[in-house]
């Protein structure tokens, strides 16, 4: 009927939430807002500082240079190079895990799921610790120098983001594949052919989700670059160069400096990192929405 309005139900007190539940929700949301607001406000003086701007390529606190651009670049570079290694690796693992048809290996397929799940929770500090005493000496013998370099951090960060990416890919691909299977197998296609020829070309969103999430994780990790990359505050031009990421920079500055422009640059670094991961989060949400609305698979 044109013009008719749906009646709103009268307010129902009995179906309202307990006070503590409401308070908890408000608290949780406020905490997030406070976190973001506080970092932004703290970073403002640095962003608009005329004398000690963080937007330069030199970090020499004793000569009045507080540039964090090399660290920004190094963070992005590390994340990207880790992604380049981890993405195809994760894809290979997922393809294997979803399509292994050899009955003799079905136990391996089952065990592998749990194995990946466990890998997501290996403490990064343990990973870094093992790498410092195992990988770094290897790199030292191979390339000379200290062995603390972008390459070492890249390798370990790619290992760190690998299980998460595998889980994301699998959660997006496993169900559609099972749905395709009866009919696809009845045509004489193998699971591998179904996955690689039918499903993967349709699953760009899932793959992108995995990549974006991996990128976010790689950007945010602190311990691996801090302990493995050598922490020289300059732009790495080579994989064997020592470098310092934003996260490592923040850990180092809070540990060593007290007050002044160094602190200010710390907040600028925090803001940049927060901004990056915020973009990642928003991109992931958009991808998830695109998937739930647009896909027919």
């Amino acid at each position: 009927m044109p013009g008719s309005k749906l009646l709103t139900l009268p307010h129902d007190k009995d179906s309202e939430a307990d006070l503590w539940i409401k308070a908890a929700t408000v608290l949780a949301v406020l905490a997030v807002i406070a976190l973001c607001a506080m970092i932004v406000v703290a970073a403002l003086p640095a962003l608009f500082s005329q004398t000690h701007t963080p937007f330069e390529w030199v970090w020499q606190p004793y000569h009045g240079h507080f540039g964090i651009l090399p660290m920004c670049a190094s963070s992005l570079l590390l994340a990207l190079s880790a992604l380049i290694i981890a993405f195809p690796w994760a894809l290979g693992i997922v393809i294997w895990h979803l399509t292994e048809e050899e009955p003799a290996l079905s136990w391996a397929r089952k065990a592998f799921g749990l194995f990946i799940r466990l890998l997501t929770t290996v403490p990064t500090v343990v990973l870094s610790f093992a790498a410092v005493f195992l990988l770094t000496p290897l790199l030292r013998t191979a390339f000379g120098g200290t062995g603390m370099c972008l390459l070492g951090a890249t390798l370990m960060v790619s290992l760190l983001i690998l299980p998460t990416m595998v889980l994301v890919m699998e959660s997006g691909l496993a169900q559609p594949l099972e749905r395709l299977c009866p009919q696809g197998l009845a045509l004489g296609l193998s699971r591998y052919q179904l996955l690689c020829h039918c499903l993967l070309p349709q699953s760009r969103t899932t793959l992108l989700q995995a990549a974006v999430l991996g990128f976010g994780r790689a950007c945010g990790d602190t311990l691996l670059p801090l302990m493995l990359a050598g922490n020289a505050p300059r732009l790495p031009l080579h994989l064997t160069d020592s470098t310092r990421t934003l996260s490592a920079h923040m850990a180092l500055v809070t540990a060593n400096e007290v007050g002044g422009a160094a602190y200010n640059s710390l907040f600028a670094a925090g803001l940049f990192l927060l901004g990056t991961t915020l973009c990642v989060t928003l991109a992931l949400r958009r991808l998830a929405r695109a998937k739930s609305s647009g896909s027919t698979v």
Binding site: V32, I33, L35, C36, I39, G216, T222, G270, L274, L284
Partner: peptide
Amino acid sequence: LAMDILAGTPSIVMGLF
């Protein structure tokens, strides 16, 4: 959205907070 943002925030930023 708030929880997603929080889950995506690197722990070093929490520390900075």
